[in-house]
């Protein structure tokens, strides 16, 4: 039976994993390759790396990191952040990533998703959606790191993304991100019911039960989280046991 996936997410800047803004005092999270190995051994099902650097020079350092990660771990990983052109997709995949995650560039140019899916296959094109609640049962798509409201309905955008050829959707609920009060179940469920491709929930994980809720009630196929894993608040093996105990199919051990 297909297992639900647990996916740690790493923000990488100038070749180093960086902490979220709210966390000032953590220094042990540093080398992305080392951290990737640690998560691989701990039983993570997949990893996501977000390149949060801007300059071209730093981008080359990042591609170098991607290659080193690919050499060390035998689980799939996705690369996101600043993927804007077919050349970007190609260079990231060629460096050893399995999937690319496309966010703002897909909104400003939907054809990009189609072209990338056509060229590299749907299975490696992930549409990442940042959504924020604007009215009851209504969410709109934000871009540029959550700063700009596009006015596009998130559910409609997810449906369109599937049509354009995205193989998977990551739904990041901006309202709850970083709050550790749980995933946005309502939004995740609404998207999961609207499309027939896998859904990855992102934003809000704080405790083990949050994962249970989003994978069961939220109908998510996978749950992504960052800080709870980086700071050791949740151990992946314990989380998997907890999910298993709640009747959720997960892959335990390696």
């Amino acid at each position: 039976m297909l297992a639900k996936r647990i996916i740690p997410c790493l923000d990488v800047d100038k070749g180093r994993v960086v902490k979220g803004k709210k966390f000032q005092n953590i220094r042990d999270v540093a080398d992305p390759v080392e951290l990737a190995q640690r998560y691989n051994q701990a039983g993570a099902d997949e990893l996501v790396f977000y390149d949060i650097t801007a300059s071209n020079e730093d981008r080359n350092i990042f591609l170098d990191v991607v290659e080193k990660v690919a050499a060390e771990i035998a689980i799939p990983f996705t690369v996101g952040g600043g993927i804007r052109t077919i050349v970007d997709v190609h260079s990231v995949l060629r460096s050893g990533a399995d999937k690319v995650s496309i966010n703002s560039a897909a909104v400003t140019n939907p054809d990009f998703i189609q072209e990338a899916a056509w060229k590299f296959g749907s299975q490696c094109i992930v549409l990442s959606i940042d959504a924020k609640k604007t009215a009851p049962e209504q969410w709109q798509v934000y871009i540029n790191g959550g700063r700009k409201n596009t006015g596009i309905d998130a559910i409609e955008w997810a449906k369109q993304g599937e049509k354009l050829g995205a193989g998977e959707i990551v739904i990041n609920a901006i309202d709850v991100d970083g709050e550790k009060n749980g995933y946005n179940i309502e939004l995740t469920k609404a998207i999961a019911q609207s499309v027939n491709i896998p859904i990855v929930a992102s934003g809000g994980a704080g405790i083990n039960d949050h994962f249970v809720s989003v994978l069961q009630e939220g109908n998510a196929d996978a749950a992504l989280a960052a800080s709870v894993f980086h700071y050791g608040e949740i151990q992946i093996s314990e989380l998997k046991n907890h999910l298993y105990g709640n009747g959720i199919t997960v892959r335990r051990g390696n």
Partner: peptide, 8 residues
């Protein structure tokens, strides 16, 4: 759901 993505 298609694609079939994940650990089986």
């Amino acid at each position: 759901k298609v694609p079939h993505i994940g650990w089986n």
